[in-house]
Structure formats: structure tokens, C-alpha cells
Write a protein that binds this DNA or RNA. Structure first.
Length: 557
RNA sequence: CCCCUUGUAGUUCAAUGGAUAGAACAACGCUCUUCUAAGGCGUUGAUGUAGGUUCGAUUCCUACCAAGGGGACCA
């Protein structure tokens, strides 16, 4: 690799100047006019060498020139940095590599032999699938895809919220005000259920007995009461039907869908394990785990009434995963950021239990999606339903082109959640969420479609795959960005941060569109083959990138 | 009261401790007889406050201010 040659040469130069074991790192300068790679060693070692950074940089360059590194066109000293400009052949080779590897360009094997469970989406049964769940679904899907691209063996898990006291409430509400027949005939049964749920909370404000009734019904459900079980199963079935149609539209799939109920009978063993290890302490009638030197607030495992909690279920879940997938499995939870303290507690406890090492438990906490007036709540009934959001997105896309509306609308929606860091809050604004121009999903899709159109219209004899010759000329921004795709994927995977891919693709598309506007790709004389190859390489990288983000890449739009 | 996260242009977002802080939207100019104008080019405009560490700070540390989220029987 050319980077290795440069690093080695710089290190040798520094050694000659009197630095023992110099530490040389290369980076891409933010500003492309500063070269393809640069190093700041001259600045870092200026004090030790008692010379100005500029002088050191010039010394380094003098040495490097003598080494005659083939892929290096030139090096220059500027503001104490040493900037390296790569030669045209380097870029031609990378273009060739992209065209040869095709869908595999960017694939790596850093995760080879490693299993990772990505838990995401995780909507609640009989509750709305909201724009908040959408965020988890989109980010989780992109993270899972990125990790699999990096060679990990990924298990995509949907941890459905299908258990808990809210089902007691649901059953009471159905029995008091609902009609199973009518709900079943309703085009949107889940909406009817949510109305009942809202109704329950409104009534419970004045009628305290309702809460007790709900608790009783949940106990019945836990004990396997036939009527309770039947109603619960019905709720699950209605919700699943709705979820499946949403996932189909979003193009998201799962390997496992073990809801919380699946782990009901697996909690006892975990609690016993905690007891055996003397980790449970009683306080005010409940049983909880206290952390060493109170580094974190205590975590409750068993309630005063003997009931279990979210934490109990999650521990049972992770214990099961460890048995099922083996030691060394990595578990990633994509949830709302408000759970970040809770996950810190769980991670610390799991480390205390010796279940997981550092870095084997990861929490991606996404920010809230807020309305303009504040948090959106199911209980109050001011929910934004995902189905409505999808329909609106498609409607807006239809205004421009009917045929691709579904793909474009959903692409816009997805990109909006992927373009920013996960932990950032987002304010829900239709114009922002469904943006079709500028830095948006459709912009990427459009750039891809345009490149594909150029290829489609080009004379077949010029489309001979990787057969082309680059005949000098200036190196374009497009070329200087294309080969970086694998580095971007690696970073996105390591940090569980798909927005690095999203922002890179925007930059890449911008470079292509700029180039496209200036050049005549099909009519440029002897360089046409290369330009076509470059276009094809762009299309390939864009396609791979869009795949990682879970955004469709239409060939025409 | 304690803890976490976030304060960047009018707005929404970027920026492994580096160079002149990048985009996009909005506004205002241009730009399709030539392969997709959902495009391209240009103009205006920003690091909450005060210190500290550093050759160099949006980034790290301290204090303050502001917003959001958490803090034992929801998840």
C-alpha cells in the first residue's frame, strides 16, 4: 500500500533527523487542496528537534523525493504539514478495483468469526408504531448491514414489547368498553386498541379501582388464565399484522423476533444466579443490586410484590443469548437515549457477573423525536402514526414523479434519520423529514439514477468493464473520494454510527454532480472510456453505500 | 439536589486535537437547441459565556448560563 510506503519513508526521515521510534500517522486533510494524505509530524516533533515545523517538513520532503515512491506524485510542505498528492495511476487502480469487486467493494473481514446481535425496532404490542420506533428501525437496520459488511455474523433481533402490566390495562379496557368483533372488523385494529388504552388512562384518573383490576388481570395472564391468554394472543396477532406490513414497506427484516414473553420462564434462573453471587440486597421490601462505591444508582430486580421488571427480563434475555450464540457474542441495543442510565447499570452488572467483557455490550441511544410543542405521548393520544408518515412521504414524492414515489418517499424518510448522529434529538417537521432536495435521500438516488442513465446510453463498445486507460490530466475530486469508501464503512461500523456513511455519500454525490455538469462524459474524445469507467465506479460505490443505509437505489427516476 | 446528553449561520446538520470551521434549507443572482435541472455555479451569514491545558481547541479540563433526558417498584 502506498500509505505504508509513505509512513515508512517519513519515519526513516525522522530517524535521520534524530527521533527514535517516531510515531507517524497519516490522515486525509479536510480540505482536498491540501492533498490526499497529510501528516502533522513536523509540528509534533518541532519542540524536540528545536527546529521550525516548516524546516522539518522540508527536510522530510527532501528525503521522500529520493525514495521515489511510485504512486506518489508530489509532496509539499505547508503550515508545518507535509501534504501528499497521489499519482493518477493510483486512482486508476482504485477505479479498476471498484469495477472488479462490484457489490463487494468496501467489504472487509475485521469481524470475521465474531457474532453480533443487533436488537432494534422493538415496538410494543397494542401500541402505536411511532416515528420514534422508526428511528430505531432505520438506524438499527443500517448498523446491522454495516456490521455484516465488515464480516460480522449478524443476528437481527426484534425484541417485541409483548408483556407487562400494560396488558392488564388492555384487557380491562377491552372487557369494559371494547367489542372484539368490532375491533376485528376495523381496518386498523391497533388504532382501536390504542383508543381503548387512552380511554383507560382517562378513566383511571378518577376511578382508582381500575388500576387494581388491571394488575389482577395481568396476574391472571401470567398464570395462564384462558380468557386473558386469548385476549393477549389476539392483541399480538393484530399488532404483528400491522408491523409486518410496515417492515415490508420499509424493506427491513429480522432473524429473530423473541418478545419479552419468550423470556418469562427464563428469569428465575437469573435471579437465582444473582442470589448465589450475593448481589441482591433487600431495601424497602424490593430486591436490588447495589454497585461498588455507589458508582451508579441501584438497579431494581424484584419488586415489592415479587413481580419482575424490565431489567429482570433483559438479564434473562442476555443470558439466553450468551448460551445460544456462545461466548464472545457482542450485543447491541438500539433504543431511545433516555434509557442510557439503565443500560449503564445493566452493562456494569453483566460485567460484574462475568458475562461480558468491555465492548461486548453496546447501547446506541438515539435522541428524541419531538413535536414542536414537546414530547409526544401515547397516553395523551397525540401520536403521529408511522403509516400516516409513510403515506405523506409517498404523496409528496408523487408530486414529482408518480412511478418512483414509494421508493423516493421512503428513501427521504430514512435518510433524514441517518444523516445526523443518532444521539441528536430531532424536531418533527414535515418539510425537514420529507425533504426531497439538497442533502437528502432523493439527492443520492437521483445522482445514482443519472449515472446509470449515462451508462445505459453509452455505446456498448466503450463499456468493457475494467478495460480503460487513464491518460494523465488533473485528478478530480470524484476520484479522490471514491477510494475512501472502505475507510468510511470501517469507521461507521467501529463507532456504530451510520451517519458517517450518509455524509460521505452526500459529498461523493456532490463531487459526481459537479463533475457531470462540467464534463461531457460520452463525448470527450480519447478519454471517454475512462470517464465512463469513473461513472460506473461512482454508481457502484453509491449503490453499495445506499445498500448499507437501507435506501433503495433506483436505476431510473 | 445529583447524573447524562446537547449548545456551531435565520433554520436543520457536519467537522479521528490541526490549515481559510464544511454542507443543505431559506433569501438573492445566474445556468437546460448537448448524455436526467430532484442538478450545477455564485453572493450574504456561525463555534452559548469566562478561564485553563496545548505549537495549535468546535473538539480535552474547570466554572457558569441555556435546552432536553434520567435518578427504586414503567419500559
Amino acid at each position: 500500500m502506498v500509505t505504508e510506503s509513505i509512513k515508512q519513508a517519513v519515519a526513516e526521515a525522522l530517524t535521520k533527523l534524530g527521533i527514535k521510534n517516531p510515531d507517524v500517522s497519516l490522515e486525509h486533510p479536510e480540505e482536498l487542496s491540501h492533498g490526499d494524505y497529510s501528516t502533522n509530524v513536523a509540528l509534533r516533533y518541532a519542540k524536540e528537534l528545536k527546529k521550525s515545523p516548516q524546516t522539518i517538513a522540508e527536510d522530510i520532503i527532501r528525503y521522500i523525493v529520493l525514495q521515489k515512491i511510485p504512486a506518489l506524485a508530489r509532496a509539499e510542505a505547508a503550515a508545518g504539514f507535509v501534504n501528499f498528492f497521489l499519482a493518477g495511476e493510483f486512482f486508476a487502480e482504485r477505479i479498476q478495483e471498484i469495477l472488479e469487486k462490484k457489490d463487494g467493494f468496501g467489504k472487509q473481514d475485521v469481524g470475521k468469526g465474531r457474532k453480533v446481535v443487533v436488537e432494534f425496532s422493538s415496538p410494543n404490542i397494542a401500541k402505536p408504531f411511532t416515528i420514534g420506533h422508526l428511528r430505531s428501525t432505520i438506524i438499527g437496520d443500517a448498523v446491522a448491514k454495516t456490521l455484516s459488511f465488515l464480516g460480522y455474523s449478524v443476528i437481527r433481533d426484534n425484541h417485541l414489547g409483548d408483556w407487562g402490566t400494560q396488558f392488564g390495562k388492555m384487557i380491562v379496557a377491552i372487557k369494559k368498553w371494547g367489542d372484539i368483533q368490532k375491533i376485528a372488523e376495523n381496518a386498523a385494529p391497533v388504532r382501536a386498541l390504542v383508543d381503548l388504552y387512552v380511554c383507560f388512562h382517562a378513566e383511571a384518573k378518577t376511578n382508582i379501582a381500575l388500576e387494581d383490576e388491571a394488575r389482577e388481570w395481568f396476574v391472571k395472564l401470567e398464570k395462564g388464565d384462558e380468557e386473558a391468554r386469548g385476549l393477549w394472543k389476539q392483541c399480538v396477532a393484530w399488532s404483528m399484522k400491522e408491523f409486518e406490513s410496515l417492515y415490508k414497506r420499509l424493506g427491513v427484516s429480522f432473524d429473530t423476533m423473541h418478545g419479552e414473553s419468550f423470556f418469562e420462564d427464563k428469569m428465575r434462573a437469573v435471579v437465582e444466579d444473582l442470589e448465589r453471587k450475593n448481589l441482591l440486597k433487600e431495601s424497602e421490601g424490593a430486591r436490588l443490586v447495589f454497585f461498588p462505591s455507589d458508582s451508579l444508582p441501584p438497579l431494581m430486580i424484584i419488586k415489592k410484590d415479587g413481580g419482575t421488571l424490565y431489567a429482570t427480563r433483559d438479564l434473562a434475555t442476555d443470558a439466553w443469548r450468551k448460551r445460544e450464540y456462545g461466548d464472545g457474542v457482542i450485543i447491541v441495543n438500539e433504543t431511545g437515549g433516555e434509557q442510557s442510565l439503565y443500560f449503564k447499570q445493566v452493562f456494569m452488572l453483566e460485567e460484574m457477573l462475568g458475562w461480558f467483557a468491555r465492548g461486548e455490550r453496546v447501547h446506541i441511544g438515539h435522541g428524541l423525536t419531538r413535536g414542536k410543542e414537546g414530547k409526544m405521548s401515547t397516553r395523551e393520544g397525540n401520536t403521529i402514526w408511522l403509516e400516516d408518515v409513510l403515506d405523506e412521504a409517498v404523496k409528496r414524492a408523487e408530486a414529482i414523479n408518480k412511478e418512483t414515489a414509494e421508493i423516493v418517499g421512503i428513501g427521504a424518510l430514512k435518510f433524514n434519520d441517518l444523516k445526523r448522529e443518532a444521539k441528536q434529538d430531532t424536531i418533527f417537521d414535515w418539510n425537514d423529514v420529507l425533504n426531497m432536495k439538497g442533502d437528502s435521500g432523493p439527492y443520492l438516488q437521483y445522482s445514482y439514477a443519472r449515472a446509470m442513465s449515462v451508462i445505459r446510453k453509452s455505446p456498448p463498445q466503450l463499456r468493457r468493464g475494467a478495460e480503460f486507460a487513464r491518460r494523465g490530466g488533473g485528478v478530480t475530486t470524484l476520484e479522490r473520494l471514491l477510494y475512501r469508501f472502505p475507510e468510511v464503512v470501517l469507521r461507521a461500523g467501529k463507532d456504530y454510527a451510520p451517519h458517517f456513511i450518509a455524509t460521505y455519500l452526500i459529498e461523493l454525490a456532490g463531487a459526481f454532480n459537479n463533475w457531470y455538469a462540467k464534463e461531457r462524459i460520452l463525448n470527450a474524445g480519447e478519454e471517454t472510456e475512462y470517464r465512463l469507467a469513473l461513472t460506473a465506479a461512482f454508481a457502484q460505490v453509491m449503490k453499495n453505500g445506499l445498500w448499507l443505509l437501507g435506501i433503495a437505489a433506483p436505476e431510473k427516476m
